[in-house]
Amino acid sequence: MIDPNKSAVLYRMVMEKHVCPFGLKSMYLLEKHGYRIDDKWLETREETDAFKARHDVETTPQTFIGGQRIGGYDDLRQFFGHKVHDPDEKSYKPVIAIFATAATLALAASWASLGTLLAVLPLEWFVSISMMLLAMLKLQDVEKFSTMFLGYDLLARRWVPYAYAYPALEWVAGALMTAHVLPWISIPVALFIGSIGAASVYYAVYVQKRELKCACVGGSGNVPLGFVSLTENLLMIGMGLWMLAKAMLPWI
């Protein structure tokens, strides 16, 4: 609810081909906190540059409350006591989102195809779909991934092409395991890349005690190297061994 005693002036870029997203966020935040907004549009580049020069600021939007300049969107969040995103902050959110999505897809597929959630198949699908989702993130920017991967993977540091091939190998193994086809390809690939990955992570984190970013979610994430990446590789090894056991022991 808007409080008539609370007012703010917001200067933001609103042009024919560009509306500043942070200006919209600032307006929403002010409205959320009950402020009446005097919304000042900066409709041309010249008008925007003149405003920035006049107030000695480098960016827009800019919010003023009670005649005092609060600043841009991040400053406004701080003003209201909200957390400000730190691009360098370590976070497990990408991994949690991936595993939650993989689990949901596996359970949904199990319910649609088997009519039950209580089966071994959704567990297999959870691992294989997780592999594909993680590989997808790596494939978005193989160059960034390979650079980060070369920081700790034992094989890639000796043979650079492996860093470029890894995402595709993981994706193919996951796809074949999801479909339960060509196990003579998927099993050795999963065991190979999983074993090397697990050894590399263990050596870098638990032997050398290095603090590195994990390449498991691609080259742009801030997931710490350690338990998550080790878990990813151990899941691949476990899936490979399980599929091998199923191939050799048909009654499983």
Rank of each mutant, 00 (worst) to 15 (best):
V181Q: 11
V181F: 05
L182A: 15
L182M: 15
P183L: 06
P183F: 12
W184M: 14
W184F: 15
W184G: 07
I185R: 14
S186W: 07
I187Y: 00
I187T: 08
P188H: 02
P188N: 00
P188S: 14
V189G: 11
V189S: 06
A190W: 05
A190L: 10
A190D: 05
L191Y: 00
F192P: 06
F192E: 11
F192K: 00
F192G: 11
I193A: 00
I193E: 13
I193H: 13
G194K: 08
S195M: 10
S195L: 12
S195A: 15
I196W: 12
I196K: 03
I196F: 14
G197Q: 09
G197D: 01
A198H: 08
A198L: 12
A198Y: 06
A199E: 08
A199P: 00
A199N: 15
A199L: 15
A199T: 05
S200M: 05
S200H: 13
S200D: 03
V201S: 07
Y202L: 13
Y202R: 01
Y202H: 14
Y203Q: 05
Y203I: 12
Y203A: 06
A204C: 11
A204I: 09
V205I: 10
V205D: 05
V205R: 11
Y206G: 05
Y206Q: 13
V207N: 04
V207W: 04
V207K: 05
V207Y: 02
V207D: 03
Q208Y: 09
Q208R: 12
K209I: 02
K209R: 12
R210T: 01
R210S: 03
E211Q: 11
E211K: 15
E211F: 02
L212C: 07
L212M: 12
K213D: 12
K213I: 05
C214M: 06
C214V: 02
C214D: 03
A215P: 03
A215G: 12
A215K: 06
A215I: 11
C216V: 11
C216L: 15
C216T: 04
V217M: 14
V217S: 09
V217E: 08
V217K: 01
G218H: 01
G218D: 15
S220I: 03
S220L: 01
G221W: 06
G221D: 00
N222P: 01
N222C: 03
V223K: 08
V223S: 06
P224E: 03
P224V: 05
P224S: 03
P224D: 04
L225H: 10
L225F: 08
G226Q: 10
V228I: 13
V228M: 08
V228G: 01
V228A: 15
S229F: 05
T231M: 12
T231Y: 03
T231W: 08
